[in-house]
Design a protein around this nucleic acid. Sequence first.
DNA 1: TCTTTCGTGTCATAAGTTCTGACATGAAAG
DNA 2: CTTTCATGTCAGAACTTATGACACGAAAGA
Lengths: 124, 124
Amino acid sequence: MAEKQLRRSLAILPMSTVMALTDLSARQIRYYETQALVHPARNEGNRRRYSLNDVDRLLEVKDGLASGMDFATMRRLYAKTHQVESTQLESKRLSDERARHLLEAEMQQLAGMRPPQSGLQQHL
Amino acid sequence: MAEKQLRRSLAILPMSTVMALTDLSARQIRYYETQALVHPARNEGNRRRYSLNDVDRLLEVKDGLASGMDFATMRRLYAKTHQVESTQLESKRLSDERARHLLEAEMQQLAGMRPPQSGLQQHL
DNA sequence: TCTTTCGTGTCATAAGTTCTGACATGAAAG
DNA sequence: CTTTCATGTCAGAACTTATGACACGAAAGA
């Protein structure tokens, strides 16, 4: 259970990749973070590292904005469906070996287990 | 068909992430590239961007070395089983929308369709 | 045993990437 | 008319990655 959440939450993507994947500007992505809509991990050098969960969330936010939804609403909406958002790969609590294990498992199930909303499932 | 290969080949990971995922040093990863064992894409700034395929390949190389196999052998071995190794996300030939589409599809099937060797499937 | 070749470590220098904070602005809300 | 929003853009600092070079223990060859 806790595993299933960890799988999608390995922080592996840098800002540039997320920008390309979501077609959002760095400014937008960081702003959504100030609005508590995403919580990327940070590497040792303080650089943001996004998880698949984060990318998904950003796409949801993008959709929400497009359909006139406001941040407060989205914030409330997300608060109920998710808890663990991202896990630092460099974390002392998770060995590389274990991290790989989780990443693989996650990729196996990335699709088909999320509610019919927006996000990776619909966009990707 | 060509799609299935593209899915695993989106170049989305920076060196630091690959290092963490494979537990290899940057030096090793670059050296294996000079040995033609991996062919990461490059972003506009000439930074390497690895795909899931690349990470997988690196883990195979790591295994191969551990079991005494030499690069020439691995090179020959890989030459027969793979062609398209990675696709630049920023490529003019692939829109972001499409890239997401492929990434998702790939993640759905990442496991369960590769020969019983080493690599992500076994390690992760 | 002496000499290469291998696979890596480590340094230095240059250049690309990302971070934070600040100023600016058109659009929407009051 | 005045705020508030969501973004753009800039600047300076700090982090990351790139390439090339020198070094070296271990393995392979002569």
